[in-house]
Design a protein around this nucleic acid. Structure first.
Lengths: 223, 223
DNA sequence: CCGGTCATGTACCAACCGGTCCAATTTTTC
DNA sequence: GAAAAATTGGACCGGTTGGTACATGACCGG
């Protein structure tokens, strides 16, 4: 079914150059995300991205100025999407240990289901995050994880179930490192140790391990 | 014993074209390691590598066939160098808990002091490790870590200080992930959370954290 | 309906980049 | 010491790639 578009409905057969700026932008971003994640910044080809789009190379330069502009837009969008991570779960209502477990599971699952995001972050790190520093807005978004974590740790400490001498960012680092690495390094790790890290069986086991590791690390020890 | 000076510079200065194949190869490899680590496979420029070398582009093609051949050689060398990791320490003579702690420290310090290696591994993962699969030799080298770890865990289990239900590769994953991530993602993580992960103070704290996390994870629990 | 801005397609280019050709000169082999 | 092999240099090439000039239709305010 042809989309009737606007009021100018079907005179006979106009070439119907369905104009839709927003759709063009989103289309380009979606394709570019894949290309940059798979091939890296310099490895990705503008022509290839354009070809996979329903529009043309001209549009990429029209909307994003150039390859780097497109890359930066892709990066920003990818980082912004994490916002959806904790929003759907109301961690602050749960008791500390359950909240912590849930937070770990969310992180684990997010990384697992967003390999393109993981790749993009790796790419950006190779470029020493010099494009990321332009994007000040994403700091706030990402630091919300820390606020949540801080709150959970604080409540746990008050209830006497969590120790008090751990920095929330350090805890986040431990969780993030494990979840991220499993995905980012699945190819080399898999090749060397002959393991398929995408195996559901392993996934389940690894999720249990990181949860257990963090839980034990947070435990209060007397003496 | 003056060289048969080139006709152009016959008067003084013998050009002294000191031929040294081995040195040429090593020189190229060293420069290429940096370039590939910093710019990635497609981002690195053969001309740039050649220029930084004391030899010429021609030599790169002579010794390594092409850009990909050079990249593969760089990758192989980088992975082979890990062999030196545990060799110098005789972990098998130490009591299990001390050995485990030492192994973690070695991994932590190795990653910390070899950021180029970390970058290369990240680059290779973006390329889905398709160059690594050609290098079967490195599997053995890297699996020696697992053998060591297996032995430590086994002895610990027999002595009753370590639990028995953990896979050595999974334990290695936990350790490796933390140590690797700290370096591989130092730029994005640092930018977002405004932390300099190379700060010695943080380094010391993080080393303590990963050691403590693993130690606690390995503890035997009754019930 | 009409001028102006927005959106898009086509064709094209100049620079770059991986790779090679030709040849010289050193080192090794016999 | 001559032939053969190994190393090196420098110029050069052809395809690729990011980017642009130009034209043209589509939408919108008045």
């Amino acid at each position: 079914m042809s989309k009737p578009a606007k009021k100018k409905a079907a005179a006979e057969q106009p070439p119907v150059v369905t104009r839709d700026p927003e759709a063009s932008v989103q289309d380009i971003l979606a394709v570019a995300t894949e290309e940059f994640a798979i091939n890296g910044l310099s490895g990705a080809r503008v022509d290839q991205i354009a070809e996979r789009t329903r529009t043309s190379k001209r549009m990429i330069y029209y909307y994003f100025k150039g390859k780097e502009g497109l890359y930066q837009a892709v990066l920003e969008k990818a980082y912004m999407d994490i916002r959806a991570l904790e929003e759907k779960a109301k961690l602050l209502d749960m008791e500390p240990r359950a909240a912590m477990r849930k937070l770990i599971e969310l992180t684990f699952d997010y990384d697992e289901t967003h390999p393109l995001f993981i790749s993009l972050v790796s790419v950006e790190n190779i470029h020493q995050a010099k494009h990321l520093t332009n994007l000040t807005s994403i700091k706030d978004v990402n630091q919300s994880v820390i606020r949540t974590l801080t709150s959970i740790l604080e409540r746990g400490r008050k209830e006497g179930v969590f120790r008090a001498d751990l920095d929330p960012v350090d805890v986040h680092l431990l969780i993030s490192a494990f979840c991220f690495f499993r995905v980012s390094n699945r190819h080399t790790f898999g090749a060397i140790f002959e393991r398929d890290l995408s195996d559901p069986k392993l996934r389940k086991r690894h999720k249990k391990i990181i949860i257990e590791a963090v839980e034990r690390l947070l435990e209060v020890r007397k003496g």
